[in-house]
Design a protein around this nucleic acid. Structure first.
Length: 560
RNA sequence: GCGCCUGUAGCUCAGGGGAUAGAGCGCUGGCCUCCGGAGCCAGGUGCGCAGGUUCGAUUCCUGCCAGGCGCACCA
């Protein structure tokens, strides 16, 4: 347990004990203690921790809250705790003021735990699957995919850090109507490139990228597929195009620092009969009906606005049907927590998917869908208008090239998923204080640079057990240590909310505290004892920065 | 029309049942020039509007207004 959690537990215990003693002394009536909170007050003047216990008791006991607070305060015993004083304030809060040196206890903890500092056990090894990006393998990755990649990957890292057993997964949409269209489009290009008349179907893919793909295909197979049946030809072309597209996606995501454990093929669900099977199961349970030649799922029975087609009149199952099968498959693989990161344009899909899974007897609550709002790019203070048709289009590859992978990733996770993201390309590209990702990485690089200077002077990072940390008495030192101590709780909060942006804010704050400290005080001084304690403070900071950066998929550079 | 998300400082956003609501950027003035000065200090009439619940609401609930996104036998 980290030092903050420990102290919280001890303070809560002391408070409960104080109430018990007050009961015994008949100063307060016997009462069940409500679930009170022990928070860090916004105002510094209100102490290091504050509790609303007396306010809650006042509601039940009908005694003025301040009076209750006074009684509790008088019965509190702080033996063995780093509490200097407690005060009753405001409407009846009890504020605790700590020995400022208390926070320094975190430094040995950080140094000893190293890259494990900040780990919290929330998951208990629970199997969780995180699905993100899952872009159509028929085009370039766009900004929505990119945000999903950064978010999903960070969420997975956070869960891993919180002791979940995480599987990162990309669902490949390699089946269905769009693939048929792709086949027809490729086939048309194939004919065209070999000098025949052919027309791309209206719903097909008209982009130039298919020309390149088809040329690559011809380089391999020449006109071998001219004489084959349409279905054989389209199959071969589609397979080739998908392999190529997926390889490209994989490569781009890898450049973005995003890696998967599983690339799950939609087509495989058809191949093993899963789609048919779930449709049968829904039929048996009476949740489907036929209408105008199509097979419908009774989504309305699960609180969804309208029913949904499972199988089209032409006999082809919808994406919805396949997605049900996919999620059943997730459950069958033993995942008890399933997280999907989807764009806002897919939110309508959530309720009916959960409805279908409930119909099949699975717990829809095991599925959490993170709906992220759309991304708008700004360049030169103006919105970058995207148009695939006019070729004005920024892909993830372009973005990485323009602003760099770390800046891109930071910008995508620095806002909550709920918030529309205005992505300022100029700012992301800037290598200055204005750019938060540089500000943070610079803090890390600065510490590394300092360690180099130390090494050049023939000195090493001192051992914790041989260093007198109580020499750290400056406000900037204590404030930094105090914030470093918060890291495990920040991780826990971010995990509970599935919100990497909270880590981003925390990082920015720690970097700021480091810069403040660094510019006020010299680390390497003539006083070796003080130097040693400062080196350890700074090294602890470096570890926290590195661990937090890693959670967001960012590099912790040694120099910049 | 219905559903989801959003509305907090000039801008971009965080926070969130409590005591005086924050950060970054921008702007203005001053300080500092030493391990990488990416530093420090000062400057603010801000929670869209109206009800409700509560000892206490910016936070929860309802309605309204505004923006985004959905409402396909697309995915």
């Amino acid at each position: 347990m980290n030092i903050i959690a420990r102290l919280r537990a001890e303070l809560k215990h002391a408070l409960i004990k104080a109430v018990a003693i007050a009961n015994k002394k008949m100063r307060l009536p016997a009462i069940e203690i409500p679930d009170f909170i022990l928070e860090v007050p916004r105002e510094k003047d209100h102490g290091d921790f504050a509790t609303n216990l007396a306010l809650l008791l006042a509601g039940v006991l009908k005694v003025p809250s301040r009076k209750i607070a006074e009684i509790i305060k008088e019965e509190l015993n702080f033996e063995g705790l780093p509490v200097i004083k407690a005060e009753v304030a405001g409407p009846g809060f009890i504020n605790f003021y700590l020995d400022p040196a208390w926070a320094l206890r975190v430094i040995p903890e950080i140094i000893n735990q190293g890259e494990d500092y900040g780990r919290v056990n929330i998951g208990n090894g629970e199997k969780v699957q995180v699905e993100y990006v899952s872009a159509n393998p028929t085009g370039l990755l766009h900004m929505g995919n990119a945000r999903g990649a950064a978010l999903g990957d960070s969420i997975a890292s956070l869960l891993d850090f919180a002791d979940y057993q995480v599987t990162r997964e990309f669902y490949v949409n390699d089946a269905g109507t769009q693939i048929e269209n792709l086949g027809k489009s490729l086939s048309a290009r194939y004919f065209q490139l070999l000098g025949f008349e052919a027309e791309i179907p209206e719903e097909g893919y008209h982009g130039e990228d298919l020309v390149a793909t088809t040329k690559n295909f011809i380089a391999l197979y020449q006109d071998k597929y001219l004489k084959e049946s349409a279905s054989v030809r389209e199959k071969a072309l589609v397979k080739y195009a998908l392999d190529e597209a997926i390889a490209t996606i994989k490569k781009t995501l890898a450049e973005f620092g995003v890696h998967y454990d599983v690339w799950f093929s939609e087509a495989s669900l058809y191949a093993i009969g899963s789609v048919k099977e779930i449709i049968e199961r829904l039929k048996e349970k009476g949740f489907v009906y036929e209408h105008e030649g199509a097979l419908w799922f009774k989504a309305r029975e699960f609180g969804v606005e309208k029913d949904e087609v499972l199988v089209r009149h032409n006999g082809v199952p919808t994406y919805f049907a396949a997605d049900i099968a996919y999620h059943v498959n997730k459950f069958q693989r033993g995942f008890t927590k399933i997280i999907n990161v989807w764009g806002a344009d897919h939110h309508g899909h959530v309720a009916r998917l959960k409805g279908a899974l409930a119909a099949l007897g699975y717990s829809p609550d095991a599925i959490q869908v993170i709906i992220m709002q759309l991304v708008r790019l700004y360049r030169g203070g103006e919105i970058v208008r995207m148009s695939k048709r006019r070729g004005q289009y920024v892909s993830l590859e372009d973005l990485i090239e323009e602003v760099g992978r770390d800046a891109a990733r930071y910008f995508f996770v620095m806002r909550s998923a709920d918030s529309h993201l205005d992505f300022d390309l100029d700012l992301a590209r800037e290598q200055s204080i204005k750019n938060p990702v540089y500000y943070i990485q610079y803090a890390h690089a600065r510490i590394c640079s300092l360690k180099k200077v130390l090494a050049e002077k023939g000195r090493a990072v001192p051992r914790v057990d041989q260093t007198d940390l109580t020499l750290l008495t400056q406000e900037a030192e204590l404030a930094l240590a105090r914030r470093l101590a918060d890291f495990p709780e920040e991780v826990a909060r971010a995990v509970q909310n599935l919100a990497p942006h909270q880590i981003a804010s925390y990082l920015h704050e720690v970097a700021g505290l480091l810069h403040t400290f660094y510019n006020h005080h010299r680390v390497i001084t003539a006083d070796p004892a003080l130097s040693n304690s400062r080196v350890l403070l700074v090294e602890a900071t470096r570890i926290v920065l590195a661990n937090a950066l890693k959670l967001l998929g960012l590099k912790a550079p040694e120099r910049m």
